[in-house]
C-alpha cells in the first residue's frame, strides 16, 4: 500500500473541485510530511477540432493555460493553510484513454497513496452516457485510497 500522505487531487474549474481541495487541506494542514499534487487532466480535442484547422499543439497550449489559472486559484485557496511549499502541479491530456484512466496512470507513476476527486452527483442516465470519473476511479483502485468529496 502506498503512503496515504502522498496525495493526488484532481482539480478543475468546478465548485466540487474546491470542496475537495478544502476537505483535503483541512486534513493535511497539520501533517508535516504530507505531499499534495494538484492534477488537471483534460480530454483529447473533439473530432472536428482538426477539420476546423486546429492543431494539437494549439489545443494543448490552450489547455495548459487553463490549467495554470486553475492551479493559481487552487494555490490562492491553499494560502490560508500555509501548504504551498508541499504542493506540486501537473497537467496532462488523456491521450486515447478516459480521464479517470489518465488519473489512475498518474497515480501509479507517482505511487500516490490517496487520490481525491470531487463528485458531481450525476443522474443514472448521465452516468450511463457520459460516465462518472469518481466511479471510474473507485472501481479500479487498488493499493491506494480514494476520497470522493461530494
Amino acid at each position: 500500500m502506498n503512503d496515504w500522505k502522498k496525495i493526488l487531487i484532481a482539480v478543475d474549474q468546478s465548485e466540487t473541485s474546491i470542496k475537495a481541495l478544502n476537505y483535503t487541506a483541512d486534513i493535511i494542514s497539520n501533517l508535516p510530511d504530507a505531499e499534495l499534487c494538484l492534477l488537471y487532466i483534460y480530454p483529447e480535442p473533439p473530432p472536428n477540432y482538426y477539420s476546423r484547422g486546429g492543431s494539437l499543439s494549439d489545443y494543448q497550449q490552450e489547455k495548459t493555460a487553463a490549467a495554470e489559472v486553475i492551479f493559481q486559484n487552487s494555490m490562492d485557496f491553499l494560502e490560508k493553510y500555509k501548504l504551498q511549499k508541499k504542493v506540486i502541479t501537473q497537467s496532462k491530456m488523456a491521450d486515447h484513454i478516459t480521464i479517470s484512466q489518465a488519473i489512475l496512470e498518474v497515480q501509479a507513476e507517482g505511487q500516490f497513496g490517496t487520490v481525491v476527486v470531487g463528485k458531481r452527483g450525476v443522474s443514472k442516465a448521465e452516468e450511463f452516457l457520459f460516465g462518472s470519473i469518481s466511479n471510474g476511479i473507485v472501481h479500479h483502485c487498488s493499493d491506494f485510497t480514494v476520497w470522493v468529496v461530494g
Binding site: P43, F128, F130, I133
Partner: peptide, 15 residues
C-alpha cells in the same frame, strides 16, 4: 458519424 464523449467513448454504441 462520430461524437465526443471522452469519459464513455463507446457508451452511445452500446446503448
Amino acid at each position: 458519424y462520430d461524437f465526443y464523449m471522452p469519459e464513455r467513448p463507446f457508451a452511445l454504441d452500446l446503448y
